[in-house]
Design a binder for these strands. Structure first.
Lengths: 141, 141
DNA sequence: AAATGATGTAATGTCAAGCATTACATCATT
DNA sequence: AATGATGTAATGCTTGACATTACATCATTT
């Protein structure tokens, strides 16, 4: 019923790396201390972000760094990178009765509207870049 | 991770009542046959729709009827009536570290954007009335 | 007023998803 | 080689939704 916290965790992770890169060793453990979750959760987030080409992670020596311009990463990109939603956000009841006029057509009648709503949410996430967030963050320090 | 099927079930329920009112006795069992769920699920949906002033349910004798103009009921109204989402649609990680510059401000930086996205989804649902759906349904018969 | 048929609602079991955590093999650097 | 970190599997826990059973209550009909 809620969109997985992997999403906010991943955003948080990127901001920590950006903020502390160069000053601190941005290991999964260090990041985990800011997010306040188990380091494994951060490693998984980093794997997703790495697969999406946003960060680089040094195995062995440790530490993550950002390898893509934050102006080119939107909240939607992160949302996608960590698979915040698999498929549709609305859960449709499984087997409407095809022998009923309503049951037979309920999908045809509803699906596009549900998809529109989901798209509206996602489009909103596309409007915000990670760079925007870092600027907002700076302003608050 | 998905919005409860109570929502699509409730929409389906309203359409069944509208479509069969007068022709069939629209009991929870009858509706359940079209939606293909347990009648109790329909009764619960009807309770919510009744509380929202959309339907009337005859206890004892049985059968539900619509008591509000379908042009005045949007998908959002139904979504709300059945409590599709409790509070926020995004799940934020619980305890960001307040001793960290990022952890301390992550909520301030993210919350409004997440709220905007949720609002975008909900606004989209406000654009569609149940009447629109019945018209679309008619066209397909 | 009894019988019927439906609703209102509590209680329970099941199942899946997400999260947290442990453990350990692997890797790069010192 | 030793160290310190990542990659990843495995496990247990908890929560939430859904399905179902059961039954008291109610309105109508006979």
């Amino acid at each position: 019923m809620k969109i997985t916290s992997r999403f906010t965790v991943a955003v948080h992770t990127l901001l920590v790396i950006y903020h502390f890169e160069g000053k601190e060793k941005t290991t999964s453990e260090f990041i985990a201390a800011s997010v306040n979750v188990n380091p494994v959760v951060i490693r998984r987030a980093l794997l997703s972000l790495k697969a999406a080409g946003m960060v680089e992670v040094k195995a062995g020596s440790g530490g993550a760094s950002i390898v893509k311009d934050l102006k080119d990463i939107t909240l939607f990109d992160v949302y996608r990178a960590v698979d915040s939603v698999d498929g549709d956000i609305f859960h449709f009841h499984e087997n409407p009765n095809p022998a009923c006029a309503v049951g037979k057509n309920i999908h045809a009648v509803l699906d596009t509207h549900l998809a529109d709503a989901q798209r509206a949410l996602e489009n909103e996430l596309k409007k915000v870049t990670l760079y925007d967030l870092t600027q907002d963050l700076e302003r608050r320090l």
